[in-house]
Design a protein around this nucleic acid. Structure first.
Lengths: 213, 213
DNA sequence: ACTACTAATGACCTTTGGGTCATTAATATA
DNA sequence: TATATTAATGACCCAAAGGTCATTAGTAGT
């Protein structure tokens, strides 16, 4: 171009760019990061813009206001990650304890260890003021996980591998430790780190001890 | 809403009062409620003042700024609630499974079912920005609970009642479901209520199945 | 009852940050 | 190359909220 940089030594390629369809996703990504760090009220749109490589005004070309961006950002991350696992469960041949072990492993990978747990902080922190968020997360993720566990438990009982008891009446108890681990990771990790492998092994051990005949 | 009546018939005793030593506690209480509802950034000092029955300026007679009030409020609620339980454990005579059952019951009462769980939301929501908070909560509450559980488990093993295994190496797994229940209550309760009694029974059942020989 | 002290007030100041809009410049089309 | 379109900018507006302080009025001491 004919325009030489005013600062020749510094590599500062600050050219204005028009990328209509890439912007929304980039802004959402930036917003999610800021909201997770600072919360809804604490996040500044100027920071979101800076992180997305645009200017505050640009955000308003794509989102009506701060809350709209927040909702869009959070909702974009609330997805059904366990759909393929359902099929796995239905088509599984083999001992039910192995199946449970397998599914718990997937849940740890997809929910606890992934960056999806930053979503959990937002849900807990802002859920009371934005009730749609926990409602949708429950519908698309949590309840899926619960249903999965419940189906596995029922299968185990039907096949005579699992025993009936208090545990089989409360599916959350089997999933609970995983959520707990996610919460721990994002809260107490700096002061008391949690070894996920050890914890998960204990989790599986505990669940199976209570279920197996 | 506290509304200042323009109407004369209403009994509105709004006399200015001087209560030097009652104010800080009242302001802290009001602050805690606001911070729990709106988060640190979202809470307004004018609202805190109104809730405490004072005026915004009054807050600054007792606290340097918003953050100082926040810290004071949160720290005032981080207390050692399990100290007396330690003694109970040390002096307990009888089967270890009964002891574990007893202690879990106390933990549910003191941490999960009490209003202390509003503290948990603050810790999760603001912990990343105010690291002292999770650190202190861990030191005064969580680690106490863990130590308690660990001591009970050790006792069970020594007396030949419990078996060694993955679970005995990860005390958080035994406490985890309780924390999970607290998180659930403050997040998904409106969309999917959790029956604490049923859940706790399942919790105890699961823990003991994994521990007992 | 008078006075000194200071808790409490509320008007005021200042900064922050959400939101707006005229202007600029990148791209598509002719 | 010239022109139209509109994504992107950044200066600007303004309400909201943190924070200050001179004034007011309870209260204790005499």
């Amino acid at each position: 171009m004919t325009k030489p940089e005013t600062v020749s030594r510094s590599a500062a390629p600050k050219k204005r760019q028009r990328r209509k369809d890439a912007r929304p996703a980039e802004i959402i990504e930036a917003g999610l990061a800021e909201f997770a760090e600072k919360g809804f009220a604490g996040a500044r749109l100027a920071d979101v813009a800076a992180r997305a490589g645009v200017v505050k005004g640009t955000i308003y070309r794509y989102f009506d206001n701060k809350e709209a961006l927040f909702q869009a950002a959070v909702m974009s991350r609330i997805v059904s990650t366990l759909d393929n696992v359902e099929e796995l469960v239905d088509g599984y041949e083999g001992p039910t304890d192995e199946l449970l072990k397998l599914v718990l492993k997937v849940i740890y990978e997809k929910i606890v260890a992934s960056d999806a747990r930053i979503l959990l902080r937002i849900i807990i922190a802002e859920g009371a003021r934005f009730p749609d968020i926990p409602a949708n997360y429950y519908r698309d993720s949590i309840s899926k996980g619960m249903a999965l566990i419940d189906r596995i438990v029922q299968r185990g009982i039907e096949q005579g591998e699992f025993q009936d008891g208090p545990m089989t009446k409360a599916p959350p108890i089997i999933l609970g430790p995983a959520i707990f681990a996610a919460v721990w990771k994002m809260t107490f990790e700096p002061v008391a780190p949690l070894d996920l492998d050890t914890f998960m092994e204990a989790h599986v051990d505990m669940a199976l001890n209570g279920l197996l005949r």
